[in-house]
Simulated scan of single mutants.
Amino acid sequence: MKGTAYLVQGALISLWWLGLAISDDFYNAFQFPEISKVAFNSFLAPDILIITFLSILRAYKTSRDLELIILGGFAYGCLYCLNASILSSGGYLSTTIMFLGLFYNLFLVYQSGLFRESRSRNPLTNALKTILQILSVWSITLILFPWIIIDAFEIETTSSQAIKILSYIIFVFSSILGLSSAYVLVKYGNGTPLPADQTQKLVVIGSYKYVRNPMAIAGMGQGLAISLYFGSIHILIYTIIGGLLWHIVVRPIEEKNMFKRFGKDYQMYHEKVKLWTPKFGKTPYKMHN
């Protein structure tokens, strides 16, 4: 699973540099004002050698040292980009991408300690933590990141009124799906949606009896709605990449943890309920307390 994650990382960075090479609009979106193209392009060799090449190497060779070197490369890049954004009052998309890469690699390196069962059985406490989590995640993924993309690519809203209405409908329904899914996790699972504060019980009711991860579907729907509203292919690509990374990288790790914690119950649930395609009908099996 880790190998695939590093291979995907190497591929994405290679595609990013390819995009910079063939598209002026793409290149300009990542530029820092008042910083020369020579200074920007000087990151090509470090990116290819330290991050891309080592990521591909790590995909086929298990090595903690390689993981830490790659993580260090992202940490250095983040500090450089953050300083450049502060000094130039721009380049926010580049800085954002670097920090996303840093958090991605922190997840890969320290994933074993990130999946923990909630210690609280208090519904109010878990509800408050869930609300805080949702507000934080939505603020970052649905407001901040799209705004950075819109600003970098100088996107102007071109969608018709009908498309905007459609985007409202998709966003509202997706949000309801996400909120209702979080609600059943808190009420019936004794935990939260946060991987570091997981439910103590396997939840197979509500939206979870139709699909295994309705919150992922909700997030994809919200991203689609925002891309439709602004008529932005860039936000749509951002949404698709986010969904693919969750599916390829996060999901297998999360499901491995679920198999370990819930055993045969989760195995039966996993076999009977699809990940993306809703399965309508009764709960796959009776939940054991």
Rank of each mutant, 00 (worst) to 15 (best):
G3F: 14
T4K: 14
L7T: 07
Q9I: 03
G10V: 01
I13L: 15
W16M: 15
W16G: 03
L20F: 12
L20I: 14
I22V: 15
Y27D: 13
Q31L: 09
P33M: 05
P46F: 02
P46K: 01
L49P: 04
S55W: 11
I56Q: 01
D65K: 10
L68G: 05
I69C: 07
I70Q: 01
L71T: 02
Y76L: 15
Y80E: 10
C81W: 06
A84G: 03
I86V: 15
S88H: 11
Y92I: 06
Y92H: 03
Y92K: 03
Y92P: 05
M98V: 07
F99P: 08
L100Y: 07
G101C: 02
G101P: 05
Y104E: 05
L106W: 02
L106R: 04
F107G: 00
F107H: 00
V109P: 10
Q111F: 00
S112Q: 12
E117A: 09
S118P: 11
R119I: 08
R121D: 15
P123S: 02
N126K: 07
L128N: 02
L128C: 08
K129T: 02
T130F: 13
S136N: 07
V137Y: 07
V137M: 03
I140M: 11
I140G: 00
T141W: 04
I143C: 08
I143P: 00
L144N: 05
F145N: 08
I149C: 11
D151L: 03
A152G: 11
Q161V: 13
I163N: 00
K164P: 11
Y168M: 13
Y168D: 13
I170V: 15
I170C: 06
I170R: 02
F173L: 15
I176W: 02
L177A: 01
A182C: 15
Y183C: 08
V184S: 07
K187I: 10
K187T: 12
Y188R: 14
G189E: 09
Q198I: 06
K201M: 02
K201A: 02
G206V: 03
K209T: 14
Y210P: 09
V211E: 08
R212Q: 10
M220W: 06
Q222T: 10
G223Q: 05
G223E: 11
L224G: 05
L224H: 04
L224D: 05
S227R: 11
L228H: 00
Y229K: 11
F230R: 01
S232R: 12
H234E: 15
L236N: 02
L236T: 05
I237T: 12
G243M: 02
G243T: 04
H247Q: 10
H247R: 06
V250M: 10
R251E: 12
I253E: 09
F259A: 00
K260G: 05
F262T: 05
G263M: 06
Y266M: 12
Q267H: 08
Y269A: 13
K272R: 15
K272I: 12
K279G: 10
F280M: 13
T283H: 04
T283V: 14
T283W: 03
M287D: 08
M287Y: 09
